[in-house]
Design a protein around this nucleic acid. Sequence first.
RNA 1: GCGCCCGUAGCUCAGUCGGAUAGAGCGUCGGCCUCCGGAGCCGAAGGUCAGAGGUUCGAGUCCUCUCGGGCGCGCCA
Length: 582
Amino acid sequence: MNVFSDFRDTVAAAVAALQRRGELPEGLDLERITVEPPRDPAHGQMATNAALVLARAARRRPMEIAALLREEIEGAAEVVEAEVAPPGFVNVRLSDDLWRRQIPVVLRAGEDYGRCDLGRGLRVNDEYCSANPTGPLHVGHGRGTVYGDALANLLDFAGYRVTREYYVNDGGAQIEAMARSVHHRYRELLGENPGPMPDGLYPLEELIPVAKAILERDGDRWAGRPEEEWLELFGREGVEAMMARIREDLDALGVRYDVFVSERELIAAGRIEEAIAFLETKGLVYTGTLPPPKGKQMEDWEPVPQLLFRSTAFGDDIDRPLRRSNGAWTYFAADLAYHLDKIRRGADLLIDVWGADHGGYVKRMQAAVKALGEGRAELVVKLCQLVRLYSGGEPLKMSKRAGRTVWLREVVEEVGRDVFRFIMLTRKNDAPLEFDLRKVVEQSKDNPVFYVQYAHARICSVFRNAAEAGIATDPETLAAAPLDRLRDPAELDLLRQMAGWPRVVEGAARSFEPHRIAFYLHDLAGAFHALWTRGKEEPGLRFLLAGEPGSTAARLAMLAAVRRVIANGLRLMGVKPVEEMH
RNA sequence: GCGCCCGUAGCUCAGUCGGAUAGAGCGUCGGCCUCCGGAGCCGAAGGUCAGAGGUUCGAGUCCUCUCGGGCGCGCCA
């Protein structure tokens, strides 16, 4: 299917041949054998460590095994040259033709080029963003949201069955706080002058329209009434309005979900009791008293017997409370119900994307999933570090106080969806990310998005020029192109980079690291830009050559394939490939 | 005090399942626009991979410890 997995088969065949000849023992562990393009081009285009890995079990010297492997591999198809390098690598040069033949492979596969079956249809539930419905999304939410969305694209492409999910925390104390905030605004609108927004409530301006809508519909009937009468209504109206706003924010980012799950509905359906009853049957729930946290001053700490989940049985540091002293369920209890719900809906792998400030929650949730899934479901938590926002080198403080928060949508509207998404994916999820608003819009040089998009646009430009010159660019012509005209090292280098795409997809999917796509595309674009500039110095290397229809067709086929790979990569990132730069 | 994450070039960061002489962008210095789009290309300088042990044929990568930074640490979500 791709050059790398094919060569892996070649190596495996060579090992098997040596086993038949009695040079290597049977029953070797081939798992640790790797096949990879060496960093140093002097080491060929493909290298394997097979001899090094097998030496111990085979009780032979690595160099001896390597020499034997070299003989076998040299006879294999597409291998031009194989050599042994100390301490026992076998380095291989593959035929130019093999690389050229990747062009029709790419063109035929089209949008599916790079798709693989790594996931084998495994059902993945990918939950990301899940911001509380108490306000619009801010910039900090954007990173996890883009990460989770790109990860979903990636895993889908790698053969997983992905559900994209948003957990709406519409049931906790924060909703009551929002309800009171709306009521406060309601009283303001009635001219009651209730004073400044009390601490712990939300001073967001975005809640004023919610209060206004209630006022217009219900008049002053909730004024001066006890909380029990209006709290739920105000909370529900607030959640509805904020979720509508959040959906707009998600739209602006180009993020779509399959499922929104409401915490309130789970609770109303008795799912918490269900989850806890299930754990009780396993003997994992008990009433006990937790020790005070060490090293942290807790003046008001009092020993309180609570209903606890025995998470220590699954690697957590302490057992975790399920009920508060006032009898209410903890957030963790609701999360048990929610994760049980995910498992029951049929997920083999759960992915939770959280902010780094939730790191302390990982162990207990993994313990919970182990207990609830009885070992059948796995929970992977990906923590996204903070986004440090700057403007022209000056840090922007993002405090919770009203007016200082930077809303996601403002930023997306300012820099554009594609730029925002790409930048969010230029860092590993567990590394902090610097985002400078002004640099990103003013200085495109600092912006890897444009570098990649420029490559795509330049290729499109070549095709526009070809069309103007009356050169055929239809798929049949490109498919019939004499690809052996592609002989320049820079051309072959570009083809080799391009052929690495399936390997990048696999690696990125395996490690849940969509950022690898961004770096790969940057490198691929680099190889293309380099070739482009060579054409300035050596006119014979230009893509469109008057009087040489064969070479022109071959180069157009190559460009079409490279453009395809760039487009596929950008698509997984959720970034639009552009045909022209402005 | 405990747990999790991080420490790689002046800055921001990559670094493949443990592979060979550690890379990119920005910044600095020097080159390339009669020519398919210069938002581009080529070159130079810049590194005790925080430190010390260990495992291994081989460690930026795995293990232990130390130092430094971030996040978190009953009944908040």
